[in-house]
């Protein structure tokens, strides 16, 4: 193998703190842990000898972590030439990670970009042109502006960014928040088990209501109503999420919410059966009200028509049309 030596290296001689070439940031997967425990290392580490006589990891950070945990004294490794260029080694390490089935997390992308700029001193232009596409991003500086601040987040937030399922809208909003605010938000999403779309939706509501009320996320979540929903042990996470959203909608869009509530209250007071679906135009944009019902025979049809005539005679239809 050109430029490589295959050797057994004492674990103690590996400088684990040197993370120059590290790409994957998540902890070792359970399957890898089981494989190393059962079969040892099937793929050697890649190392490079440093000027101080210790080795630095080029790839295999997770494997090294496990080997260290298992108390191995020596580890098989491919040692690359000391003359190998750092950027070339990092790029190869990056390519190895990109070939894995699991996509890079937003934090990993941020760290890659940050290293390319800060450690390897590449210009914005080169990073955008030569690296963005392989990271699955468009060749646009905007991505640098969005991802780079993630690498400056606190450790707790960074840990959250490693898990899958966070909406990118939310991820990109995090650096602008104070650490405590970030933690409130991330804890809330975790507790409510929200999917990405619902996270985006709820984040928009929380962000706007906080600005409207000039209060922090922490204070908002302590607010009467929200705090009660979140503390209610009888509710499932889905129910909590729905109720939180309803409450936030009322705070964000008070006039619209009141109008909608008045519409539904009117239907309820008039005793309209749920199977007779009466709805206002979307956001009350027009005065039109729509009515939908289904029937299986003429008797059922007449029953619904009778119900509508009753509503008309009682003045309910007129009131509905003129709401709000």
């Amino acid at each position: 193998m050109n430029g490589y030596r295959f050797v057994l290296v004492p674990v103690a001689e590996i400088a684990a703190e040197d993370e120059t070439f590290r790409v994957a940031l998540d902890p070792p997967e359970a399957s890898l842990r089981a494989s190393v425990a059962a079969h040892g290392l099937l793929q050697p580490l890649r190392l490079q000898l440093r000027a101080d006589g210790r080795y630095r990891l080029v790839s295999g950070f997770k494997r090294f972590h496990l080997v260290h945990e298992l108390g191995w004294e020596q580890v098989p490794a491919l040692v690359v030439s000391e003359r190998q260029n750092d950027l070339a080694l990092y790029t190869s390490s990056l390519q190895e990670r990109l070939a894995a089935p699991k996509p890079l997390s937003p934090l990993e992308i941020a760290e890659v970009l940050s290293k390319l700029r800060a450690v390897f001193a590449l210009s914005e232009e080169i990073v955008v042109r030569d690296f963005m596409p392989s990271l699955g991003l468009g060749r646009n500086r905007i991505w640098l502006e969005r991802y780079l601040p993630l690498s400056g987040l606190d450790e707790r937030s960074k840990t959250e960014l490693l898990r899958e399922g966070l909406s990118l809208d939310v991820v990109f909003a995090l650096p602008a928040l104070a650490a405590e605010e970030r933690h409130h938000l991330l804890d809330l999403f975790k507790a409510l088990r929200l999917g990405k779309n619902k996270q985006s939706e709820m984040y928009s509501l929380i962000r706007d209501v906080c600005r409207m009320q000039r209060r922090s996320i922490g204070a908002l979540l302590q607010q009467q109503g929200l705090a009660e929903i979140l503390a209610d042990v009888e509710l499932t996470s889905t129910q909590k999420a729905e109720r939180c959203k309803e409450l936030l909608m009322r705070l964000r869009y008070p006039h619209f919410s009141r109008a909608l509530q008045a519409f539904h209250d009117l239907l309820k007071e008039a005793g309209v059966p749920p199977a007779l679906r009466i709805s206002p135009s979307p956001f009350f944009n027009s005065e039109e009200v729509s009515i939908a019902f289904s029937f299986k025979d003429e008797n059922e049809f007449r029953r619904w028509m009778g119900e509508l005539q009753r509503l008309d005679a009682e003045g309910v239809i007129e009131k509905l049309v003129h709401l709000p």
């Binding site: 600005r211 409207m212 964000r252 869009y253 008070p254 619209f256 979307p282 956001f283 944009n285």
Partner: peptide, 11 residues
């Protein structure tokens, strides 16, 4: 703060 108004999708 203009985006914080009660702005909703129109037709």
């Amino acid at each position: 703060r203009i985006v914080l108004g009660e702005l909703l999708p129109g037709p």
